[in-house]
Amino acid sequence: MATIGAPLLQAKEGSPRGPLERREERLAWLMLLPVILALLALGVYPVLSTLWFSFQQGGSFGLGTTSAGLANYLRLLHDEQFWSALRFSLLYSLVTVCGQMLCGTALALFANRRFRGRWLARAAILFPWAIPTATNSVIWAYMFNDQYGLINSLLEHLGLLNPAHPIVWLGSAQLATLLIYVLAIWKANSLVALLVLAGLQGIPEEVYEAARVDGASRWQLLWRVTLPLLRPVLLVTLILRTIESLQAFDLISAFTNGGPGNATQNLGLYIYLQIQQFGDFGYGSTIAVVLTAITLLFIVLYMRTLLRTGTR
């Protein structure tokens, strides 16, 4: 089975010679043309401008900047906030993407079973994700307020918490980080589940029948049949979740705003701070470029690993 990563990594596309191939090539470019034009028109300028600003300094909101050479990149080396934000971003990406992939796949396998009330499971998959991220984070912060929040109240009703000593959920770096992980996994396992569910439908029933005839158990079916066949979908899901988790912004900014202190400030918040609040286009763009490079690294890594283990 080909994977979407294949064209990226396998250089050998061959050069079409015959008239049939030439027609195919023409058709391909015709079909690609609108996308390429649209991306050239809208996507290229902001990217180039970000790259350019990463070599500029001074000025205010990108006005009146002067050439900086590599100064912005060198500044990164000594910027503790950058490193702590980077650390947070990487851990966040690792933990939440793993969590989302596991929970989402489990949800999808569950919702793919046939039983009465399945629509509820499917609605349950959609809900977290259909709530606007920023609104959702405000609701979560509300639920985890230590005084008038739902969670502490529930714990008190269950006798697990003394009202005089409420748990300050967002007041400690560890708890706040943990809650951000939970929130992020909860919010986006839907997307994984949706994609996996769609992928599951592409697996013909005959494959399972054949495996069952061979005496495969349920677990063996899952590990030997379902998951390998889902590899293309899982890979693209992994890539999409990684990109988005590294670019996370709304979710954290409306939930903790990077607090307590700067304990939950990720690269997204830090870039936004530098660009939109400080007007330091040069430095903000530099961090954005670094973030892009890291994202690219992750994706290449995933594709190499997954392609190596799954060729056909």
Binding site: I243, I271, I275, A288
Partner: peptide, 9 residues
């Protein structure tokens, strides 16, 4: 791959 918040302006 470029974060959207660096492209707002």
């Amino acid at each position: 791959l470029f974060p959207p918040f660096s492209q707002v302006i």
